[in-house]
């Protein structure tokens, strides 16, 4: 080895193909000591292996599920008139106007307007309440069957 031989840092740069120094490459090509040192380093680094299993599928699928949940549009926050609500609920105009005191609405300059999201929530909550309050027993008494003689 002489004073011009490559140090370990230069050899590592050459191993990882990050050396732009033409002089170092030329020296490596001509110096047997540096070639031996470089070959030793290559053997050592090539043997360093840490096998990684083929993983990450669960993480990707869970992340995609979360992303799709987040990107779903929230309830449409549109404003509707009585006619539109009637059309949407498939009832008559008068049904809606008669039920006005039961439905969430607001009035702008004398005009009745509905927020669709609030209306949806209201209808959904009322339906849930109605389900829970459903009578366990039939209200009507069973009609006795007449015995035919």
């Amino acid at each position: 080895m002489n004073g011009r031989c490559l140090n370990e840092e230069q050899l590592i740069e050459l191993y990882y193909a990050e050396s732009d120094c033409a002089e170092a490459k030329a020296h490596l090509a001509s110096c047997p000591d540096c070639q031996n040192a470089f070959a030793r380093l290559c053997n050592e680094l090539v043997e360093l292996d840490m096998a990684v299993p083929d993983g990450g599928h669960r993480a990707v699928s869970e992340a995609l599920k979360a992303v799709s949940r987040q990107s779903q549009p929230a309830g449409q926050d549109t404003i509707m008139t009585i006619e539109e609500v009637a059309q949407w609920l498939k009832v008559s105009y008068h049904n809606v106007s008669n039920m006005l005191h039961l439905l969430p609405h607001f009035i702008i300059d004398g005009q009745v307007r509905f927020n669709r999201r609030l209306l949806e929530n209201h209808l959904f909550n009322n339906r849930a309440g109605a389900d829970s309050k459903a009578p366990q027993q039939p209200l009507r008494k069973p009609v006795p069957i007449k015995r035919v003689v």
């Binding site: 840490m50 990684v52 299993p53 993983g55 990450g56 669960r58 993480a59 990707v60 869970e62 992340a63 979360a66 992303v67 987040q70």
Partner: peptide, 21 residues
Amino acid sequence: RLSFDRCVAEDLLQETLLTIH
């Protein structure tokens, strides 16, 4: 390679992807 634990790697990967999003 940093944790040497498959479960940790899965969890960190999921958190990273969600943060990217």
